[in-house]
């Protein structure tokens, strides 16, 4: 084989190797923070679409979000989701206006688990908190906005990029 042809083949091989390495690295990145989002969709919309998988979530009073609209400390924002539905399968808490939408996804399939979850969020900017709940009647939805973040009680916080 001529040296030029051999170099071409080796070059193509290494290009393919680098492409495959990049493709393998994508799930790891997606698992951390960066998410590949289709054009025209926000990170939040894409996450909701992935969770619902074609289903429609209807707003329902049986899903309650306990949250204050003004967060005194943006680093610790308490939120509680309570579901008044006996056959709840999972509770998902999402936020918009941030680089990642999914905050927590709790499965409640075991009979010992009751459909209730509380946690503390850390927010960079005001956001709408959305609870998506999968039940035997389909997906239910409820949302509430945090309209103002008062302060962040941590010395190392300086700035945050826009989503």
């Amino acid at each position: 084989m001529h040296r030029r042809e051999w170099l071409k083949q080796v070059g193509q091989g290494s290009a393919l190797a680098s492409v495959s390495t990049a493709l393998q690295a994508q799930p790891l990145l997606a698992g951390t923070v960066l998410q590949a989002v289709p054009d025209g969709l926000s990170v939040f919309e894409h996450s909701v679409e992935q969770l619902l998988d074609g289903a429609v979530a209807s707003t329902d009073e049986r899903v309650q979000i306990h949250l204050k609209p003004i967060a005194a400390n943006s680093a610790v924002v308490p939120v509680e989701v309570v579901v008044k539905h006996k056959e709840t399968q999972q509770i998902c808490i999402l936020i918009d206006n941030h680089n990642t939408a999914l905050v927590a996804q709790l499965d409640t399939l075991h009979p010992s688990m009751l459909p209730r979850l509380s946690a503390h969020l850390q927010l960079i900017r005001p956001a709408r908190v959305v609870a998506l709940v999968q039940t035997s009647d389909g997906w239910l939805r409820q949302s509430q906005a945090i309209v103002e973040l008062r302060s962040r009680c941590e010395p190392d916080s300086v700035t945050a990029d826009k989503p």
Binding site: V76, T100, V103, M113
Partner: peptide
């Protein structure tokens, strides 16, 4: 519980 990055430092959960 699957978690995202926007949970507060030293997270506390109640089930």
């Amino acid at each position: 519980i699957k978690l995202g990055p926007h949970i507060a430092k030293n997270p506390a959960f109640s089930l």
